[in-house]
Design a protein around this nucleic acid. Structure first.
Ligand code: MN
Ligand code: MN
Ligand code: MN
Ligand code: MN
Lengths: 219, 219
DNA sequence: TTTTATTTTTAGACAAGTCTAAAAATTTTA
DNA sequence: TAAAATTTTTAGACTTGTCTAAAAATAAAA
């Protein structure tokens, strides 16, 4: 049973939405994620339900079946490994690789992705700090601490980003913040929740919008 | 104007058929190449003619326009560069890469293929000895000498293969003949056009079917 | 607890790419 | 050069994925 690119994109969208929200995903959420209309989503949902890739009861939202989840994680794995290839081997910047990986993740092969993984020397995280699932579909996500939750005086290292959209990545580049950057909280402004932080390149002010999208590990 | 994978495959098919035959390509030839029906080909031909990618007069066969040819060569370039990547970097065998390259050649990006080319250190030929077009679409094909045309006593080096189908590649592997192999013609059998040749690994008999599919350069 | 607003599903349509069956044109053969 | 065979094109239909407009169900407000 080979899936179309479109079907794979739906599964992936449901997977990431279910993770961000809480398991049951609504028609409108999916349509927003995939830039389609709700009616198109309903059509596809029914097709995926027929193939036992999602659990679906009319008007009740949708969730992935075990096999549906497995396929979704496989696509995430492919996406992230291709991103590593593009950044580490082809010298792309981390803000340039997403659209390309969107295409490459759909290449069909039994062997390709494992060979690619070996060639990349078994990376554990993609260029945005997201964990790469192993070939059995296992993945633990435990990047739960945000920079915004740190107290004054605490230091941390940046280990991931929540919003990996282009503009955000470009902005981080401008601030010279990358994965591995060390940040110390100097002060916090209760009014707008911004914070003054100390980085390797100096002292900068960071808005709440930024600090709540940076995963960090306390030092 | 972005083309679908299907449209790209038609252009590529017309390109290689026009080269093998003589410019004007028939509906049935294309349908055989792409495993479709002649009626489907006619439909697509008309679409491509509307887009000025092919010259087409009803019942008169089809040929590529300048822009159509340029696109076809670009796809050939991508196909061959991806094949080099798969063989040189991911350790695939030369008989395993064609289907994968059929998919990868359709990845859309302004920059990807040039970066890939640089990463591969600007290879000039793919794993089957076929020349890789440059980024301006230039390609000279001058691999016109077949092993079958050599005289007794002459030596040559294998520089390409005409039929790069799986079975043929596997058979060459078994004979331990690769690109770069040196072959000396010991005798020729007029009855079936087979020849006895001397290779690095010994003396073997080669059928006409084989010798007329091996491009060689005389030593 | 009704009424109203919002979300979700259905109905019907369209574009892309394919197919089969039949008609039209071309090529081959006699 | 006329008849037969082959190739090519058209006509009509089907699938996938999408859309708009309208109906049905659910959620929110009064
Ligand atoms: Mn995708
Ligand atoms: Mn990523
Ligand atoms: Mn292809
Ligand atoms: Mn090749």
């Amino acid at each position: 049973m080979s899936l179309s690119q479109t079907e794979e994109n739906y599964l992936k969208a449901i997977y990431s939405l279910a993770y961000a929200n809480s398991n049951k995903v609504s028609t409108t959420l999916i349509s927003a994620e995939l830039n389609t209309k709700a009616s198109s989503v309903t059509d596809m949902i029914q097709k995926l339900a027929d193939k036992d890739l999602v659990h679906y009861k009319k008007y009740q939202g949708v969730s992935l079946t075990e096999i549906g989840r497995k396929i979704a994680v496989e696509i995430v794995r492919k996406h992230r490994l291709w991103e590593v290839f593009l950044v580490n081997k082809l010298n792309y910047n981390w803000d340039e690789v997403h659209e390309l990986a969107e295409q490459l993740e759909h290449i069909k092969s039994e062997t390709l992705i494992d060979k690619l993984e070996a060639f990349l020397e078994f990376p554990t995280h993609d260029p945005h700090g997201d964990q790469i699932p192993d070939k059995n579909g296992n993945i633990e996500h435990h990047k739960n601490m945000m920079l915004s939750t740190l107290e004054i005086g605490e230091s941390c290292v940046v280990i991931g980003i929540k919003d990996s959209s282009d503009p955000f990545l470009k902005f981080l580049d401008k601030l010279q913040i990358q994965l591995g950057s060390i940040i110390k909280v100097v002060s916090k402004e209760p009014f707008d929740n911004s914070m003054l932080v100390e980085t390797a390149t100096g002292s900068i002010s960071i808005s709440h919008q930024i600090s709540k999208n940076l995963f960090v590990k306390k030092l």
